[in-house]
Amino acid sequence: MTETDLIPVFDGHNDTLLKLYQSGQSDVEKLFIEGSPASWHIDLPRARKGGLIGGMFAIFPPPQEERKAKDDGVISLPSDNEPLPPELPRSVAQESTLAMASILLRLERAGALAICRSAADIRAAMARNTMAAVFHIEGVEAIDTDLVMLDVLHAAGLRSLGIVWSRPNAFGHGVPFRFPSSPDTGDGLTDAGKALVKACNRLKIMIDLSHLNEKGFRDVARLSDAPLVATHSNVHALCPHSRNLTEWQLGAIKDSDGMVGLNYATGFLREDGRMNADTPLEVMVRHIDALLKALGEDRVGLGSDFDGAMIPATIGDAAGLPRLTDALAKHGYGRALIEKIAYRNWLRVLEKSIG
């Protein structure tokens, strides 16, 4: 397949900024432009090879401890009582958030990507063959409850945020990494969280429901006048993980004319909940089938979680994206539908959400 044959992909979620931040290298622009370590998922050469034209570039304030894969590429099954990670102090979150925002701005200055503040900006970047990056925050621990930092980050280009990662903060409660589990795991949004939803609507910042628990989801659905969006989540009926979306959540997203981006994390795809790289593409296609049935063909996209999760080895990294679109074609999806899933639906919902 030549580059001109590639189906463009706009992706709902990646953690590449975190990888660059944690690399400890001063020349992260060179790392992104010329090529990153083999274990990473996104850099410019791999993006171009795979047709990745852009996506939501997440800023994620990392926890103190990370779950580690074993040598065989499998992470043990999460328990049904897995605790929530502890809250992160605001000062710690602000340090990493601002550092990753700086990296994003430096990548733009180096010509590696364009920070896009609207759907029109994304289309313009696509037209000039420039990576389109939407500034996203996953877990808003760096934002104060007076929302002063929100204004600063919005001015820097912030256009999408997830109120929580899988831990509590001043605004709401994330779901723990539990399997099997429903997402009904705690309280809803705090008063500060409800104010944040209204502020995001006013500023045209898209709200990402991934990682939010059920009661928080209901609060956003009740308060928000924007489409409900889960940038990187899957179908709970196929994989009963607390991170996945139940039937009523999918119904609320459809009713709001929002969308869901398929998460490639194998633990959120597999029926057994295991993080195992030996996961066939057919499992991903099964989730897309279910999302299409629940949401319709205009509300389904891709939300890889590249550089933040164990993904199927068959895809490997951004260069392997054509293997997924080829699998959709072999499954019987036509070119027009594949293009909707690959990028057109994200443009549609972003235009409704951020302008």
Score class of each variant (00 low, 15 high):
I7P: 03
I7M: 01
P8A: 00
T16S: 07
T16W: 00
K19I: 14
Y21K: 01
S23I: 14
G24W: 12
Q25I: 14
S26A: 14
S26K: 15
L31G: 02
S39H: 15
R46E: 04
R48V: 00
R48Q: 14
R48S: 01
I53H: 02
G55L: 09
I59Q: 00
V74D: 01
P78Y: 04
P78K: 07
D80T: 10
P89T: 00
V92N: 11
Q94P: 06
S96A: 12
A99K: 14
A101S: 14
L104H: 07
R109V: 01
G111W: 07
S118I: 08
A125Q: 06
N129P: 11
A142G: 10
L147D: 00
L150N: 02
D151N: 15
V152Q: 11
L153E: 02
G157K: 10
G157N: 06
L158I: 12
V164W: 05
S166C: 11
A170P: 11
F171A: 02
H173P: 03
H173V: 15
P176V: 02
P183G: 01
D184K: 15
D184T: 11
T185G: 04
D187A: 15
D187C: 11
V197E: 00
L203I: 08
I205S: 07
I205V: 15
I205N: 10
L212P: 13
D219N: 13
S224R: 11
D225H: 11
T231L: 05
V235M: 10
A237I: 05
P240I: 10
P240H: 10
H241Q: 08
S242E: 09
R243P: 13
L245G: 08
Q249K: 14
L250S: 01
D257G: 06
V260C: 06
Y264Q: 06
Y264T: 02
R270S: 07
M275V: 09
A277E: 14
A277H: 15
V283H: 04
D289G: 08
K293G: 10
K293W: 07
K293T: 14
L295G: 02
E297D: 13
D298T: 15
R299I: 03
V300P: 13
G301V: 10
D307G: 04
D307A: 01
A313S: 12
A313L: 09
D326P: 06
G332F: 06
L337W: 08
I338V: 12
L350R: 13
L350V: 11
